[in-house]
Amino acid sequence: MSDPQPSSAQRLIGGFAPKLVELTDGVLFGDVWKRDGLSARDRSLVTITALVAGGNVEQLPFHLKLGVENGLTRDEIVETITHLVFYSGWPKAMSAITTAKETLASG
Rank of each mutant, 00 (worst) to 15 (best):
L12M: 11
A40P: 00
P61L: 07
V27P: 01
K92E: 02
S88I: 02
S2W: 11
Q5N: 12
S8D: 11
D42V: 13
E102V: 08
H83R: 10
Y87S: 01
P61E: 04
K19H: 13
A96Y: 00
F16G: 01
V32G: 06
Y87H: 09
D36A: 15
E102P: 03
V27S: 08
H63G: 04
D31W: 02
S39G: 09
E79L: 05
T47G: 01
G26F: 04
V46C: 10
H63P: 01
T99F: 02
A17D: 04
V46P: 01
A93M: 05
P18R: 03
N56T: 14
G107I: 10
L72R: 02
Q5A: 15
H63F: 03
V52I: 04
T98W: 05
A40W: 01
L84C: 12
R35M: 08
V32T: 12
I97K: 03
K101D: 13
G54A: 13
G37F: 14
Q59T: 04
V21H: 01
R35N: 07
G71K: 07
I48F: 02
S39W: 09
L45T: 00
L72C: 13
I77N: 05
T103R: 01
A40M: 09
W90N: 04
P6T: 08
M1L: 15
V68Y: 05
S2L: 13
T99H: 07
K65C: 05
G67T: 04
S106Q: 12
L51P: 00
G26K: 08
